[in-house]
Design a protein around this nucleic acid. Structure first.
Lengths: 201, 201
DNA sequence: CGGAAGTGTTGACCTATGTCAACGTTTTAA
DNA sequence: TTAAAACGTTGACATAGGTCAACACTTCCG
């Protein structure tokens, strides 16, 4: 049980990440420590903007606790929520992170959050030198892809009621954790309609 | 220019794939030949089903020429088109391919198509043994993820006119190559609305 | 503690888009 | 080659859901 013990040797702040990795891969605690050493703890307060619209994204975030949201604002000033990431998940403005072009979206903490940050340079160095981490990145991409697909297909031709049922089904805590307004902008319906729909469940 | 010449040494049927790889990576022609050797040519006729709903997907396709479509059919019998892949693109029922569970979608050739097929086993063997191919898989996933995101955000809150403009902008040949009915089911609008919208452009 | 700002809910009304049907044209397949 | 099926377009009509406004409740912050 060396791997399990090795979690406890690590500083508290790395335990969610260590747990994330060990949950997916057999990995020695040396390597685990090494991976963790590239991540810096960071606290973000409610509503803090982590990536701005024109910014090129240079880091990846892991969420120890809290919630981050990716969103855009249309020319008419309407916010559209793209994605919500919760405790124990990786998140960044991925297209910008990959291509090093302006994000064209915002990344924001919507609750007080405790994060780990890794620079893009270190991230890809881990990807290129640690097979287990390369595998983790692959899994993040696979999961991201599959989730994006699910979202498209979950929405395609669905009416408001079906969308709400779908989100309750696929992310049971979502409506409890996220404000109606943000949830509505995620589901692509108006707050009024979301409110009316929930009352009819 | 050994790499360029090496394309011409390969059988005709592998040239689009070789071109795809060389376009993205420096790679010796030995390795290139080796990669190609895992792919088998396959012809598909118009409307041929390559993956069925309950089937677990065991292969990846590369399209030499033609067009493949991923779609589902609702309980009410309504088809929803999920994705169209054209010449020079990789495509499969990815969630099923990754997790080896039933596809829950159909993969169909909508034109007479010339394909290359690689088995899942060989695919992942290449991923695990050829760094360039691992990189290619990563790029497929990244692109797939980014495209899926673009599609979500391209659709979020857009009306019919905006969706049509968006698809013309992001995939100029799409409406020329795909029937109105399928295009409509991809855009999440009715064929009537698509027809009316196009006449108003 | 108290005023201000933000949020959720609900009603009234309006509009974009869906449904259905008719019709001519194109494609399919024997 | 031709009959049958599928498709694209268009009109008439129905409706889900958007917008806007009012109001109560909660949260924020000086």
């Amino acid at each position: 049980m060396a791997d399990i013990e090795s979690i406890n040797e690590l500083p508290q702040v790395y335990q969610p990440l260590a747990s994330y990795i060990l949950h997916r891969h057999k990995i020695g605690h040396e390597k685990l420590r090494d991976i963790c050493s590239y991540f810096q703890p960071l606290k973000a307060h409610r509503k803090e903007l982590l990536i701005d619209y024109d910014e090129t994204c240079k880091v990846y975030y892991f969420i120890n606790s809290g919630c981050l949201r990716l969103f855009t604002v249309s020319s008419a000033g309407v916010e559209t929520s793209r994605y919500f990431a919760f405790d124990g998940m990786f998140v960044t403005a991925l297209p910008s992170f990959i291509d090093q072009r302006p994000a064209l979206e915002y990344l924001q903490a919507i609750e007080k959050s405790e994060l780990l940050v890794i620079s893009r340079k270190d991230f890809f160095q881990l990807v290129d030198t640690v097979p287990e981490f390369s595998q983790i990145y692959r899994e993040i991409l696979e999961l991201g892809f599959v989730n994006a697909q699910k979202r498209i297909y979950g929405f395609q031709g669905f009416n408001a009621l079906e969308k709400v049922k779908w989100v309750i089904e696929s992310q049971p805590n979502f409506l409890l954790r996220v404000s109606n307004k943000m949830a509505a902008s995620y589901l692509g319906i108006s707050p009024s309609t979301l409110s009316r729909t929930k009352s009819r469940l």
